[in-house]
Nucleic acid binder design. Structure first.
Length: 564
RNA sequence: GGCCGGAUGCCAGAGUGGACUAAUGGAGCGGAUUGCAAAUCCGUUAUUCGUGGGUUCGAAUCCCACUCCGGCCUCCA
């Protein structure tokens, strides 16, 4: 059991002590959503895993060691500068992707929304947007993403309300991307092909010998082309089959910008290099203070003098390992590291620690729209599941295992949250604060920290919480405080609870819907019970059950009504 | 074909050489409580850890083979 944070690193394929360059300012970049549709629970599992990591790094319960193995700064002075981008430039949907042809995702979204508009099936709130305006569509889905993210307690999305530079948009970063591409060309890591004003720019993969370090996909392995997606016909203008797109000139593209190579749009990978470097490699301006990311000119001149990584942590879904993160490393090191290209293997690989949560399964199967097991958080909220239960269900499995999202698991999670809430409520209301239970708290805190230090064993940490909570007979204010400290990492107790709609007799639990028919039945049942006519009372309860309502007598004569 | 990550009880999910006759939550069952329920509390439910070999005094944990599941091999969290 490590007494400090040990985290699996995709780059080294080992669990390693996490040692930030500067614990006072840990730099963390997460590849964010593409806003051409609503993000689903699988997307959110990955974002929430990164959020749990970030919260643990910020927690006083987390201990880091420095290079000599001694304790690094403990919480208080330790902060995490966490950036997550919004990809609002379309990228390719099909096999022609690497060559910049084909329909892009934003274009696909315009087509989808246009069709939806014709058939009257637009998502709520989308009625006013022009389905052919890609920027408007991106803003629309971005707003929905941020709403879901905040309801699920994604701290970076909450912080971005204060400091929008923490969640940069790709469309706002194009000048920086252009500056980096120019730099890559100047350094021999990229080349432009085609007639002047209509050029395509590729990254030269052979110019970066360390390519493949992250994914294990060496150039030799790639040459085998077993994925079947690299098409020979599109390889003609590239110098090497693995070279990837940095800029595509296309004056007909819906989203396009002026560039030295012609009007067009950037490749997918370059945006993360630009946004991560601009916000995380800039001057130390403190965490959530509004800051000016590096200007394009500064990005074009940024030089990382040593072979150390530029940022501490980088996360994304496991599918991002290749090609996206492999390409990010090549571009970023090629553009910013001072070391000559032929010394590339010694470079810092852009980020020191690469964090990749695995995919989410739903009811034991791969999530897909055709199987009907494809959910977005807002789908679940609309069905009456509260954000805290959804969050807990999405984070409670170790991030490097395929988690299985189930309806039953969602119910389990909801009950667990309710149990924890009782501890907070009873503890906060208790007058006794005599220091009792101190040993049990110390033990629970140790067990929780041990589990989290061990590559974020969240299930073990939750087990530690439950074992301790189960041992409490009368929670004290100190107990409530400790549970809040745990929840600083788990992040469910501070989330909004759906307000129960209250009538004189009923407390309607999921969303507010004081059904008058139900209320009338509750009143008849109350009268029957008062008259000790229990047969009639039970018959009404059965009737409510057949209507899909579970009822529970609460103190004070009210009845909690839960829609199944 | 190559490279990764997995497989634990009815379900979810910890545990990675000895205190494991396997944490924790749910579910089931029995009891307390309740008019009856719900919630809560107490007790209980795997001689067993995908399959077959091996190493070891000792294996869920290490090694080998196999089966199955998931990811990547230029759309994807």
């Amino acid at each position: 059991m490590p007494d400090h944070l040990v985290l699996y690193n995709t780059l080294t394929r080992k669990a390693e002590a996490f040692r930030p360059r500067d614990p006072r300012r840990i730099t963390f970049y997460t590849c964010g959503p593409t806003v051409y549709d609503d993000a689903h629970i699988g997307n959110f599992r990955s974002f929430l895993a990164a959020d749990v990591l970030r919260r643990f790094l910020e927690s006083p319960l987390c201990r880091l060691v420095d290079d000599d193995g001694g304790p690094a700064l403990q919480a208080g002075s330790r902060t995490v500068l966490h950036v997550m981008n919004i990809t609002d430039v379309g990228h390719m949907t099909d096999d022609d992707a690497a060559d910049g042809a084909g329909e892009d995702k934003m274009a696909a979204a315009t087509r989808r929304l246009s069709e939806a508009k014709k058939s009257g099936k637009l998502p709520p709130g989308a009625g006013d947007i022009d389905p052919t305006d890609q920027h408007a569509i991106a803003r629309f889905y971005e707003a929905r993403f941020l709403e879901d993210a905040r309801r699920l307690g994604l701290r970076v999305a909450i912080d971005a309300q204060r400091d929008p530079t923490l969640m940069p948009r790709a469309t706002g970063a194009v000048p920086g991307m252009i500056a980096i591409i120019e730099r890559l060309i100047a350094r021999g890591h990229a080349y432009a092909v085609g007639p002047a004003g209509r050029q395509t720019v590729y990254f030269s993969v052979p110019s970066f010998p360390a390519y493949g370090s992250l994914s294990g996909n060496t150039l030799d392995a790639l040459r085998a082309g077993q994925g079947g997606r690299v098409q020979e016909s599109h390889q003609a203008e590239k110098k090497h089959p693995a070279d990837f797109l940095l800029w595509k000139s296309d004056p007909t593209h819906a989203m396009r910008w002026a560039s030295p190579w012609g009007e067009g749009y950037p490749g997918w990978h370059i945006e993360c290099t630009a946004m991560a470097a601009a916000r995380l490699c800039g001057p130390d301006d403190g965490r959530n203070e509004p800051a000016s990311p590096l200007t394009p000119a500064a990005l074009g001149a940024l030089e990382v003098a040593d072979v150390r990584p530029m940022i501490d942590l980088h996360s994304g879904g496991e599918d991002n390992i290749f090609p996206h993160h492999e390409c990010e490393i090549a571009q970023s090191c090629g553009a910013f590291n001072a070391t000559p290209a032929d010394a590339a293997p010694a470079r810092g690989m852009f980020a020191a620690h690469w964090f990749h949560p695995r995919f989410l399964m739903v009811e034991g199967a791969k999530m897909s729209k055709s199987k009907g097991n494809f959910f977005t958080p807002r789908d679940l909220f609309a069905k009456g599941h509260e954000p805290a239960a959804v969050r807990l269900e999405l984070i409670k499995t170790h991030y490097r295992s395929n988690a299985n999202f189930t309806e039953q698991g969602l119910k389990d999670s909801a009950r667990m949250v309710e149990r924890w809430r009782r501890v907070i409520e009873q503890g906060a209301g208790a007058t006794r604060a005599d220091g009792s239970g101190k040993a049990a708290r110390a033990e629970a805190q140790q067990a929780f920290a041990d589990a989290m230090h061990d590559d974020l064993n969240i299930a073990g940490a939750i087990g530690a919480i439950n074992a301790w909570v189960g041992s409490l007979d009368a929670p004290t204010p100190e107990d409530a405080a400790l549970l809040r400290a745990f929840d600083g990492v788990v992040g469910v107790l501070a989330l909004e609870r759906p307000a129960a709609a209250s009538t004189d007799i009923g407390l309607f639990i999921p969303p507010a819907e004081p059904n008058p028919e139900v209320t009338a039945l509750l009143e008849r049942r109350r009268d029957a019970r008062a008259a000790k006519d229990f047969a009639a009372a039970d018959q009404i309860r059965d009737q409510l059950a057949s209507m899909g309502y579970a009822i529970k007598d609460a103190p004070g004569g009210k009845v909690e009504v839960r829609k199944a």
